[in-house]
């Protein structure tokens, strides 16, 4: 694929849309949670206001260079997934910078932000940050193993590392989706999905009741602004990746947003129903069913 400068503008537009969808989805989810508790909940545009407020603080204090870089790394993780992934299948404008081996790069970016955060939070003076980040890293790593196995199963199935090709193979009726052609890998990936969404039962890392808000304890004002920008982009970007790999991609924006919403709801519903796991419980859980299913999905492909 040849590079055209106008593509940057289209990618930024796509990023802007995804960013706003992410913020609105966050407030929608919190509103649903509030309605379950018979409250009215936050306003729909509250995350936007919070973001503006965080960016308009007057003072901020740094603990060193890594402290500055950590939110940037985190945001790079979110944007990196987005930038190298085709958003709308068949669209010349919203294919972003996808290329033949983009899936590998994206898998790297999923983990990238957490690592950057670990370095930055470690530099803050708060010991809770370090505890939170060690919990977060171990949990994300545990969730990553079944995730990678499921992705590998899809790659082997399609004989390709290109997300565009994988989406292309799923076109022509929903029975062609990976969800139906490779259900074991899909189930594995959906279980691993819960681990990376930072929702109950896997939200001990950010829980205010356990160790005050975990890794971002020290991050404030615009640092927190960058982090919450990422928290709007990253889950949606990851959800779009799942749509591309397992649910037939999307050919226009409404379908994409609908699919993203439904997929996002999966983690919300599970989070509303199940209580929080402790770190060692969640690692044990990931090492049990998702891991077995992940290995099974690859074995089925190899032997079947």
């Amino acid at each position: 694929m040849t590079f055209e400068p106008i593509q940057i503008a289209w990618t930024l537009l796509g990023l802007f849309i995804v960013f706003n969808v992410g913020l609105l989805l966050t407030s929608t989810v919190r509103k649903i949670g509030a309605r379950v508790g018979k409250r009215r909940g936050i306003r729909f545009f509250q995350p936007h206001i919070d973001l503006i407020k965080n960016y308009s603080f007057r003072t901020n204090f740094s603990h060193g260079i890594m402290f500055y870089l950590a939110p940037v790394f985190r945001l790079t993780g979110g944007i990196g997934i987005f930038v190298f992934m085709p958003i709308i299948y068949g669209s010349a404008h919203f294919s972003n910078f996808s290329f033949a081996g983009d899936a590998i790069l994206i898998m790297y970016f999923i983990f990238f932000g957490t690592l950057g955060m670990a370095l930055g939070a470690g530099e803050g003076a708060m010991p809770f940050s370090a505890i939170g980040i060690s919990r977060g890293l171990s949990q994300v790593t545990a969730a990553e193993i079944p995730l990678v196995l499921a992705f590998l199963a899809v790659f082997i199935q399609n004989n390709s590392f290109s997300i565009t090709e994988i989406v292309a193979a799923q076109q022509g009726g929903f029975l062609n989706w990976t969800m139906f052609t490779n259900p074991i890998a899909t189930i594995t990936a959906m279980l691993a999905f819960l681990g990376a969404m930072m929702r109950s039962p896997f939200d001990i890392v950010l829980a205010p009741q356990e160790i005050p808000v975990g890794p971002p304890t020290e991050f404030h004002s615009s640092f927190l602004g960058v982090l919450s920008t990422n928290r709007a982009i990253f889950p949606i970007a990851k959800t779009i990746l799942y749509i591309n790999l397992f649910f037939g991609g999307a050919t226009n924006w409404p379908v994409l947003i609908l699919k993203a919403f439904l997929l996002y709801m999966w983690s919300v519903v599970v989070g509303t129903v199940f209580p929080r796991f402790r770190t060692e419980q969640s690692i044990r859980w990931f090492m049990k069913y998702p891991l077995i299913l992940g290995i099974l999905s690859i074995l089925v492909l190899q032997l079947g």
Partner: peptide, 22 residues
């Protein structure tokens, strides 16, 4: 923060760390 008064609808939220609250 209970259903009766519910300050969340006025944009008031509770944070656990001084760094993030105003």
């Amino acid at each position: 923060v209970t259903p009766k008064y519910d300050v969340y609808r006025f944009g008031i939220q509770i944070r656990a760390t001084p760094r993030q609250s105003n």
